[in-house]
């Protein structure tokens, strides 16, 4: 994780808004906890959001927040003081405006909820096809240049790919799986996978993220100290993709 990536993907804000996966959050935490630049950014974003909250209603009404701040001369300020009595009337107007803004906000949320619900229903109603591939773990002595032991040919018309991981001695615990492309960049990850005794593990990834090329699926186990430790590596090559 580098600063360019963090800025491009709005990692700072998405972290604070809980919009990152658990794996992405953990990765970012490990970076920022010791990075003064990211700590400044995070604290600025935290304070900004916190200070923005009480102004949300004003912000929802463009007329209430002029584009440029007007600097009032003292005379105008004095005049404003005379008009203070009018505030009692204005207060009622403000309350109405706030009510309208709240209603607008509630409507936006309702629409968003309905939208998400429709998407979910659509997903459930649509039949999905998956192809399963059994991956053998990659040994330490296998060099980066040697032929991968797990060739994968993706058939057309599939939405998902099931990667069934062969392990000699599966141990119960909490695992994290990461899919890396040929350049070692993470393209998918899932954490918090629970395995029991004598359970085989499979992960399901969207077929759309796999193009022809080399990939490595890594498994990491959560240690009692709270850190993920390497637990397995499965290299595979996608020979054909629709």
């Amino acid at each position: 994780m580098n600063h360019e990536e963090i800025e491009e993907q709005n990692i700072t804000e998405r972290y604070l808004l809980h919009q990152l996966s658990a794996a992405q959050s953990a990765l970012f935490e490990e970076h920022f906890v010791d990075c003064p630049v990211c700590l400044d950014r995070l604290e600025d974003a935290e304070r900004f959001r916190s200070a923005l909250k009480p102004l949300a209603n004003e912000l929802a009404q463009p007329a209430a927040m002029p584009g440029r701040r007007t600097v009032w001369p003292r005379a105008a300020m004095a005049l404003a003081a005379v008009l203070l009595a009018g505030l009692f009337v204005a207060r009622d107007v403000n309350l109405r405006s706030e009510l309208e803004a709240s209603r607008a906000s509630a409507t936006a949320w309702r629409e968003r909820f309905q939208d998400e619900k429709n998407k979910r229903s659509q997903f459930i109603a649509t039949p999905h096809a998956a192809a399963t591939f059994f991956l053998s773990s990659t040994r330490g002595q296998e060099s980066a240049d040697s032929d991968p032991v797990n060739p994968v040919k993706l058939p057309t018309g599939i939405d998902w790919v099931v990667l069934a991981l062969e392990a000699e001695q599966p141990q119960p615990g909490t695992l994290r799986a990461k899919l890396l492309d040929a350049g070692g960049r993470g393209i998918w990850s899932v954490s918090g996978l629970q395995t029991g005794p004598r359970q085989a593990l499979s992960v399901i990834v969207p077929a759309s993220i796999l193009a022809v090329g080399n990939y490595t699926l890594t498994l990491e186990r959560l240690s009692p100290a709270g850190a993920y430790q390497p637990a397995g590596s499965f290299r595979f090559v996608v020979l054909s993709a629709p």
Binding site: A26, E29, E30, H31, V33, D34, A225, G226, A227, Y228
Partner: peptide, 8 residues
Amino acid sequence: RLSGFLCG
């Protein structure tokens, strides 16, 4: 990897 340990 002290950072990761503390975060966890």
